[in-house]
Simulated assay, not measured.
Amino acid sequence: MGDDDKGAVCVTGATGYIASWLIMKLLQHGYNVHATVRSHHFKEKKDLDYLISLPEAAKKLKLFYANLDDSTSFHKAIQGCIGVFHLAHPMDIQNQESEERVTKRTLEGTKGILKACLESKTVKKVVYTSSATTVLFNGKNDLDMVDEDVWSDIEICRSINLVGSSYSVSKILTEKSILEFGKVNGFEVVSLILPLVVGPFICPTIPSSVYISLAMIFGMYFNLSPFTLYTL
Rank of each mutant, 00 (worst) to 15 (best):
T134A: 15
V189L: 02
V210I: 06
E155M: 03
L196Y: 08
K176S: 07
V197H: 10
D142I: 01
L214Q: 07
V169L: 06
S170L: 05
D149K: 06
V190F: 14
G186V: 05
N161Q: 09
W151G: 02
K176A: 08
L179T: 10
D153C: 10
S166F: 03
S225D: 15
T122P: 01
F222P: 03
I217K: 09
L143N: 04
D144T: 01
I160F: 13
T122H: 04
V184E: 15
R158C: 06
V184W: 07
F187R: 03
P207F: 05
L224I: 09
F137W: 11
N138H: 03
A132R: 00
S120K: 12
Y221W: 09
F181I: 13
F222T: 15
V123M: 00
S152T: 10
I172W: 02
T134E: 14
Y211T: 09
V127M: 11
V190M: 06
V135Q: 08
V169R: 03
K140Q: 12
F137K: 01
M145P: 02
I160T: 13
V198T: 14
D142E: 04
S208P: 00
I178W: 12
E188T: 14
L194R: 04
F187W: 07
V150W: 03
F201K: 10
N161Y: 07
I206K: 14
T129N: 09
L136Y: 05
F218M: 12
S120D: 09
S159K: 15
L118E: 10
S152I: 08
K183C: 01
V146S: 12
P207D: 00
D149L: 05
I217R: 13
S152F: 02
S191T: 05
S168E: 11
F201G: 02
E180I: 06
L224P: 00
V197N: 07
V126N: 03
S208H: 08
L192N: 04
G219Y: 00
K121M: 12
I193D: 09
Y167M: 10
N141H: 08
E119Y: 04
M220L: 14
A215G: 14
L214A: 15
W151E: 07
G182V: 02
F218E: 03
G186P: 01
S170K: 02
Y211A: 14
I178V: 14
G139C: 10
G182W: 04
T122V: 07
V150R: 00
S159F: 00
S166A: 15
M220I: 13
S165I: 10
L194T: 14
V150I: 11
E155F: 02
N161K: 02
G164M: 02
T134L: 11
I172P: 03
